[in-house]
Design a protein around this nucleic acid. Structure first.
Lengths: 327, 327
DNA sequence: CTGAAAGCGCTAACAC
DNA sequence: GTGTTAGCGCTTTCAG
């Protein structure tokens, strides 16, 4: 930076200002500095900057899983939006464990990030405390409940479950069930199940049928859970799956048993993963705006970085029913 | 850190040593320091440490895509192994673009990472130069070719393609084809196609049939590409897909056309994604060790961090044919 | 084996 | 609008 300052004929303070807050410096000076930066190939050292400013251009993001492509898409979009503004994502994978999340929050916070992004709204007291004390924007994403910690970008999973149930009812199904996996671990999946159950109670006055396997969601668990269900309730005529991967497994299970979809059994998933539009029959599903969540989080954060007086918000990004042949 | 030093009755230098290189300090002193750290809840500031040491406990990783769960699994495993040793992953997503990779390498390098991990072996001259100059371990993963930049952890995609072709031949198929997507972008997929083509030439003495759609791999492109292929060569009896997602699309396309799998058409994929074992019929595939790659990279890196004199290596992690009902 | 001291490269008051 | 100056919190020689 000293070299750049020398070449541009200014002080390092001015170089720093020119690079950081363009408006704090005269246009021609800024131009000169930028040219010097360019000819010298200067790249700022963010560790030094972070140390001096007590804040790095980093945003810590914790997701419960990457293999699940829901969060991968969100992360991609977030990084895409953040990168041009010089913000790096520091990723943490909590593997659906609160202890792991605690440790990650600590470790991310030690970098003095500009913001922290968490998945969901269930966090330990210790994490909450620490986050509140950090004095930086915190956004919880992929969920939309009461009492946000700070900002919230998501949608209601309960509403998703309700919509799935209503869609099956609309298609004339009356013996319907919800099939999930690891519902004790995956809060959002459990909320979808709860929404589904509500509608069954309200509209059918029946006891909701919810089945869940302990393993995590996959095509295999979807298929097996459906097999279980058919054992117990052979007359079921409509199933909402906790996600598309499970629904795919269910679809294959139907093929194996020679149950026609949707005539004999209507199937709806959640996620609108890439195969949903292409399966035979094409899979009805509910599409969460995976990328939009990432974009909304990034935009909100950028806005708050620019204007520190801007407060938290709650953004409902919604979701969309995608009716296809499987219902 | 000053507080910790005070409480432990030592200097900050000793605290730093106790935390960083346990063996450089007497056991009882180390014990005292650790206790002080614990009671004070001290968390080191990595930016300060990085600034002083000109090296952070960070490893920069660049993957071409996250939505593709191949790399997500590798990343998960790598982070799992690295985290207990205090190393954080800084993630970059190149979106299969070399320009993006260039920019990411620059930005990651500015953090003074302890190592850089790249996907594949195709990099721009500028990136190569910069990486060489950084004087840190660099590992290229998911590919296994000539002239590694430094370390290499992967397997031969050409061999995967060869194995797929041979498997179809073993199953008695003679009119076989390879179906890919965006082969000009995805070097590794192209290598699988090339391996496939070699075997067709060697064993059948025929002109290899390779079809590729410009869009990126998905169930839809897999299905469409297969449809194209069947148009042009209705007598094809065995197809190797560039990955399982495409194979899934192909399977559905067969169902739609009433082509029996494997009787009329044998299908093999690549990846062993979770649905492959569960589809109807179950999908034959070739399984790359997704997590093992991440673990091997992490282990190798940790070893080199511990012993700076340790040099680069090349690790062939191999892959495995998983024959199932679709062939 | 431990302590003192000198920075690492940058930002942010504070002057001017 | 721009320069001076004093650190940010740690690591690492260098002595002892």
């Amino acid at each position: 930076m000293a070299d750049v300052a020398l070449l541009a004929g200014v002080s390092t303070a001015t170089v720093s200002r020119a690079l950081r807050r363009a408006e704090a410096v005269s246009p021609q000076l800024r131009e000169r500095v930028l040219r010097a930066v360019d000819t010298l190939g200067y790249v700022p050292n963010p560790a030094a900057g972070g140390l001096a400013a007590a804040r790095t251009r980093t945003v810590g993001v914790i997701v419960p899983s990457l293999v699940n492509s829901f969060f991968a898409a969100t992360l991609d979009a977030m990084a895409e939006r953040l990168a041009p503004r010089g913000y790096q994502i520091m990723l943490g994978n909590s593997a659906y464990s609160q202890d792991a999340e605690d440790a990650l929050v600590n470790s991310l916070l030690s970098w003095s990030p500009a913001a922290i992004v968490l998945t969901g709204q269930a966090h330990s007291r210790a994490t909450l405390q620490r986050l509140l004390g950090a004095g930086i924007p915190v956004v919880e994403m992929w969920e939309l409940g009461e009492n946000p910690l700070d900002s919230l970008v998501g949608f209601s999973h309960r509403a998703v479950g309700r919509l799935a149930a209503r869609h099956l009812l609309d298609r004339g199904r009356r013996r319907i069930a919800f099939v999930g996996a690891a519902l004790d671990e995956d809060r959002r999946a459990a909320q979808r199940g709860a929404g589904f159950a509500e509608v069954v109670r309200e509209s059918l006055g029946a006891t909701p049928l919810i089945v869940s396997l302990p393993q995590r969601a996959s095509a295999a668990t979807g298929g097996r859970a459906l097999a279980d269900l058919l054992e117990r309730r052979p007359d079921v005529d409509g199933v909402a799956f906790s996600n598309d991967a499970m629904a795919l497994g269910g679809l294959f299970e139907c093929q194996r048993r020679g149950l026609r979809v949707p005539e004999r059994l209507a199937l709806i998933g959640f996620g609108d993963l890439d195969f949903a539009a292409w399966s035979a029959p094409a899979l009805s599903t509910i599409r969460p705006p995976r990328r939009e969540i990432g974009l909304a989080v990034a935009d909100h954060l950028l806005q708050r970085f620019d204007d520190p007086s801007a407060g938290p918000t709650t953004i409902d990004v919604g979701f969309e029913l995608v009716p296809r042949a499987s219902t």
